[in-house]
């Protein structure tokens, strides 16, 4: 089949809401765009292990420690499915990690903010996972089959994470004066960065139009952000915590008008100038380099085993 015909078939599938599968023909730009988005998502899951891991050894009860360990393990698992989904597009995990280390690939800018108190662990689950779910629920309908299926699995676990985060923040908001203060402080620091997780406004989002046409992305940044705000503000009200936005206002249609996001901060963090960018990347590089001899040993052992099998 010539390329024009193949492209026609590709668009027919997209129109008909059929999934594109790894063996199907796809435009090179579609593939590139997917690799960029899925790898960014995979790296986010993996880098996200660091801020939460920062509190495992200080989790304040056996139950809290178990839940946090299980949660981080889930995130690492999500990273794995997403790397695998990316590999179906013909790029190896090693290459993806190299791109991360060379800062050619990005991860969610939210993880460049520090997680400073136990209430932050609650806020990360409540706000960060809460924002991630809004985005990921929408991505369950993405046009690329392996990505869509990974999202379905991930959404199930993320909604559990969001509830466990809300449980921590609830306990703290209803706890001692000091705990309540920590809860409000966590919300103050993490609210705006959580809104930034949805990316630039639609008019400034360079990748969005194409991704929407290909149905990689199903809903716009602004729409998803609004959905998150409308869902989260009442949850904060229940806890008696205040959203750090003086312009926040309930409108007649039940949605919230909100203040101007500090886009300068967003672009600074995306470009590497956030509070923890260097720390996160350095940690990943260090762990990867320290593990090199282990990976080499495993490969050497694997090769000697397969030689034995062939000889036998």
């Amino acid at each position: 089949m010539d390329e024009a015909k193949q492209e026609e078939l590709f668009w027919k599938k997209i129109e008909a809401e059929e999934k594109i599968e790894p063996k199907d023909w796809m435009p090179e730009d579609y593939r590139k765009n997917l690799i960029r988005q899925i790898s960014q998502h995979a790296h986010s899951e993996v880098i996200g292990m660091q801020p939460e891991g920062n509190w495992i050894t200080r989790a304040p009860s056996l139950r809290a420690k178990k839940v946090l360990l299980a949660k981080i393990q889930d995130e690492a698992g999500h990273g794995l499915y997403l790397y695998s989904a990316c590999e179906t597009l013909g790029v190896s995990r090693d290459t993806l990690i190299e791109q991360l280390h060379q800062q050619k690939a990005k991860y969610s800018s939210i993880f460049n903010y520090p997680v400073l108190s136990w209430a932050d662990i609650g806020a990360v689950g409540w706000l960060v996972d809460g924002a991630a779910i809004v985005n990921q629920v929408s991505l369950q309908r993405t046009s690329y089959g392996p990505y869509s299926r990974a999202m379905v699995r991930i959404c199930k676990e993320e909604s559990f994470h969001q509830r466990q985060g809300y449980e921590i923040i609830t306990q703290m908001a209803n706890g001692t004066a000091e705990q309540r203060e920590m809860a409000q402080d966590a919300l103050n620091r993490l609210w705006w960065p959580s809104l930034m997780m949805f990316g630039p406004t639609d008019k400034d989002s360079p990748n969005s139009a194409k991704a929407m046409k290909w149905k990689i992305k199903r809903e716009s940044n602004d729409l998803l952000r609004q959905r998150f705000i409308d869902k989260t503000v009442p949850q904060a009200e229940i806890l008696g915590l205040s959203i750090p936005d003086p312009d926040l206002e309930l409108q007649a249609d039940g949605s919230y008008k909100f203040g101007e996001i500090n886009w300068q901060e967003f672009y600074d963090v995306v470009q590497g100038n956030g509070p923890c960018n260097k720390q996160r990347l350095d940690h990943h590089i260090k762990a990867h380099n320290e593990g090199a001899w282990v990976r080499e040993a495993a490969i050497a052992y694997g090769m000697s085993k397969s030689k034995e099998t062939i000889a036998a």
């Binding site: 993996v46 292990m49 050894t57 981080i72 762990a287 593990g291 990976r295």
Partner: peptide
Amino acid sequence: AERCSNGPFLEE
């Protein structure tokens, strides 16, 4: 638990 995010690869 101290080893979390320090493994030689993700599966480990």
